[in-house]
C-alpha cells in the first residue's frame, strides 16, 4: 500500500514537472506595475496562466504580456508587456538615451502602469533568453476570468512602425 503510493509519486512527479515546463503553469501577479490590465484593484490579486508552449520558439510579438527573469535579480520573475522586438526603434521614457534601437536577440518590455514599473526604461533592452512564458489568461478570481488580449497603446508604438504606417498612407 505505502510502496504503491511512493511508486506513483516517483512516476507522477517527473510527469508533472515536465508538464509545468512544457505546457505552462499558474502564477500569482504581485505589484501594481501592470495596472489596469492585471491587479486593477488593490484588495485582490490576480492569478494568470503562464503559457510556456507559446514561447518555445521565442517568436514574441509586440503587445503580448510575457513573464521573464528579471535582469536585476535572477531569483525574481517579472511580468511585462512587449513594446519592441529586435530592430525596432523605441522612444524611451526616462532611460539614459531618448531613442533606442533594439539590438539583435533583445526586446523592450514595459509595465502598463508607466512610472510605477521597473522595466526597460530602467534597465534597458532585455535578452530574449530571459523570457519564460506568455501570460494568456486570468484564471482567478472567477469574476476576472478572461483571455489577455495583445494590445499596445498608440503612444508606445515603436517609431519604425509608425513611419511604416505613415508611408503606406
Amino acid at each position: 500500500m505505502v510502496s504503491n503510493f511512493i511508486k506513483s509519486i516517483i512516476i507522477g512527479l517527473p510527469i508533472g514537472v515536465t508538464f509545468l515546463d512544457l505546457i505552462g503553469y499558474v502564477a500569482r501577479v504581485d505589484g501594481i506595475s501592470m495596472q489596469p490590465v492585471l491587479n486593477p484593484d488593490k484588495s485582490q490579486t490576480d492569478y494568470v496562466f503562464l503559457n510556456r508552449w507559446a514561447v518555445r520558439s521565442l517568436d514574441i510579438k509586440r503587445g503580448e504580456i510575457i513573464s521573464l527573469i528579471s535582469p536585476k535579480d535572477p531569483d525574481q520573475t517579472i511580468i511585462k508587456r512587449v513594446v519592441g522586438i529586435p530592430g525596432d526603434i523605441i522612444s524611451t521614457i526616462g532611460y539614459k538615451r531618448e531613442v533606442v534601437r533594439i539590438p539583435e536577440g533583445h526586446c523592450w518590455v514595459e509595465g502598463d502602469h508607466t512610472g510605477h514599473s521597473v522595466d526597460s526604461n530602467h534597465f534597458g533592452p532585455v535578452s530574449l533568453g530571459l523570457i519564460t512564458a506568455k501570460a494568456s489568461c486570468i484564471v482567478w478570481p472567477p469574476s476576472r476570468w478572461q483571455y489577455i488580449r495583445s494590445f499596445l497603446p498608440e503612444s508606445r508604438v515603436p517609431l519604425n512602425v509608425i513611419s511604416q504606417v505613415m508611408a503606406s498612407v
Partner: peptide, 19 residues
C-alpha cells in the same frame, strides 16, 4: 543555487541569439 564563482566554465544562452 547561484553558486557560481570566478573561473567556472559555464553554458549560457547567447545574449544576442537566444536559440
Amino acid at each position: 543555487f547561484r553558486y557560481i564563482s570566478r573561473g567556472d566554465v559555464i553554458i549560457a544562452k547567447c545574449p544576442t541569439n537566444p536559440k
